[in-house]
Design a protein around this nucleic acid. Structure first.
Lengths: 147, 147
DNA sequence: TATTGTTATACTCTATAACTATA
DNA sequence: TATAGTTATAGAGTATAACAATA
């Protein structure tokens, strides 16, 4: 390993991690229920975890811009996964929450999670799974408190 | 942790990992040198690591379809990062390799890698960095021998 | 016929800028 | 004026299907 920059260890790791994450994200985009992409699935799971939330809150949680959230909400509405209501006190505010269909869908998806990624994870040793488990938490922390 | 499916540990982990990877990939797509996106950068690094390779080999390594590689190669050519030649023995085959400019660019990018991701990695402890380092290797293995 | 790569087309995800509606 | 969200537009990344060139 060449050590030439100020922080070689993290620079090297950044490169390696970027490659791994980019590739896996691309694969994930192709797998799973074709009707709901990984992006929509993550948004739906956020709405489930958080409970009823405004479009702006969803944007903040997903770390995307408001127009993107408009599209996400539209796509989830089209699929009947969420319900949208206006705030009775502030007409500018839109609330979204899981629909019963969305809840069932998430359960179904989770039951089917033993697909691409889980199948691949099963090839790993318990120690490797442990590494990935701790790494997932770190990945989430890496994207927190952003912008 | 709820244990209800056939392989609960991996199913849970799959979900967690998918969320982390999807979010970080989205962030990475927005960072870095605006002239070369993470996708192009990964492709360029593959060409560097591998040395001269055919378009088909690049598709296999990047795990994308041939039309996608056509576009990747076009984008890298436009930016002067690679050179393209025809195989003298088999006219169907296209070879690509790093140009001097591409090589300099990669060096420059690496020197500048102490940006978004590296900066965030520095907030982690040595133990956490070690976890991520082992995890990056695992992420690459997860997308190997596919399709 | 089979293989390598390109072209045509379409979809997803994202952004910025400009806008509407409401406060 | 300021804020929440939408519309318009554009660009990156990917795919499948159909094609051209070569073997």
């Amino acid at each position: 390993m060449m050590l030439v920059t100020a922080s070689p260890a993290t620079a090297d790791l950044a490169s390696q991690l970027r490659i791994g994450v980019t590739r896996l994200a691309r694969r994930l985009r192709l797998e799973g229920d074709a009707s709901v992409t990984p992006t929509l699935l993550v948004a739906l799971a956020t709405i489930e975890r958080h409970g009823p939330m405004t479009a702006g809150e969803l944007a903040a949680h997903e770390q995307v811009r408001k127009p993107t959230v408009t599209r996400l909400i539209g796509a989830l509405l089209e699929r009947g996964m969420i319900e949208r209501t206006s705030d009775p006190l502030d007409g500018r505010v839109t609330w979204v929450q899981l629909s019963p269909e969305g809840r069932r869908f998430l359960q179904r998806v989770r039951r089917r999670k033993d697909e691409y990624l889980s199948g691949r994870l099963r090839r790993l040793t318990p120690g490797e799974l442990d590494t990935l488990e701790r790494a997932s938490a770190l990945l989430e922390r890496l994207t927190e408190d952003d912008r």
